[in-house]
């Protein structure tokens, strides 16, 4: 990784279990400032969990997560909330507040954390909505928007406080090609124009590789590959190639572990 760029987030030897099931074991990764870092991997390996660990919503069993040098799981709740004003997250569902309209959703964090007059808040909201192409939808309720538009509105809300770090949780999941293209463009443009540090968690290989500066591929509780999109495409790691090429079988088996098939059909395992 580029050692010249200071890191905004560092995950050091982090292990996390859910009950008796290990999700991560001695995981290490770094998120450099001002870059788009992608975290990819098959479904169910804990990509969303990783974002929740980075943002302090979950606590690891061992290891550290440093945000701008602060151990996010060691700071007090007040300090954690202060750090969270410098980061934001785009949830997979959008997570807009359903009882207030789109403009109020975008204004929510501004009203909570600033003493700006309402006229300035309205101006900022209009600018953020304009950036995601939804200035005309400010008065609509979230349930009046399509899935893609809800995610764009949530993106406007995520950048309202102009955070340093934006984490995108599966931003392309369930989107039609047009909405997906719009989101790819928005993430790229917003990251560049606002100099945001972005973490994109996704398994949409083509879209992610088109915008990422650096990619981590997580599987089997650890990082199995990392590098620039170009380096990953040229890698000879079989597990990585299976994931990138979308092969149904390979090092990651198609079948869930089971007893011998023939014996089961013959009734020997019953």
């Amino acid at each position: 990784m580029d050692n010249q760029t200071p890191n905004l987030v560092e995950v050091r030897n982090m292990s996390f279990n859910r009950g008796s099931r290990a999700i991560f074991k001695d995981l290490n990764l770094t998120i450099p400032k001002g870059k788009v870092t992608a975290i990819m991997g098959p479904s169910g390996i804990g990509k969303t969990t990783l974002l929740k660990l980075i943002s302090g919503q979950l606590t690891p069993d061992s290891g550290q997560v440093l945000f701008d040098g602060h151990d996010i799981h060691k700071v007090s709740r007040k300090e954690l909330f202060n750090l969270r004003q410098r980061m934001s997250m785009l949830f997979q569902s959008g997570a807009l507040f359903t009882d207030i309209n789109v403009a109020d959703n975008v204004a929510f964090a501004l009203r909570e954390h600033s003493n700006l007059p309402e006229s300035i808040i309205n101006t900022i909201v209009a600018m953020k909505l304009e950036a995601v192409g939804l200035r005309g939808a400010g008065k609509l309720m979230p349930n009046e928007l399509s899935g893609g538009m809800q995610r764009r509105a949530a993106l406007a809300r995520a950048i309202a406080l102009e955070p340093e770090l934006v984490m995108y949780d599966e931003p392309f999941a369930g989107q039609d090609p047009i909405a997906m293209g719009v989101l790819v463009k928005l993430i790229k443009e917003l990251s560049e124009s606002l100099n945001l540090t972005s973490v994109v968690v996704s398994h949409d290989v083509v879209e992610v590789l088109s915008i990422a500066d650096y990619v981590y591929v997580v599987a089997d509780k650890k990082v199995i590959a990392e590098g620039t999109p170009q380096q990953l495409k040229q890698s000879d790691n079989l597990q990585l190639q299976q994931f990138m090429g979308g092969e149904p079988d390979g090092p990651v088996p198609f079948h869930f572990p089971a007893p011998d098939y023939k014996k089961e059909l013959m009734g020997e395992n019953r």
């Binding site: 969270r84 004003q85 949830f91 569902s93 997570a95 929510f108 964090a109 909570e112 954390h113």
Partner: peptide, 14 residues
């Protein structure tokens, strides 16, 4: 279930 509580947490609102 719609992650609204998590998004409040992430916006530094208890």
């Amino acid at each position: 279930s719609t992650e609204q509580l998590s998004s409040l947490e992430m916006m530094a609102v208890d």
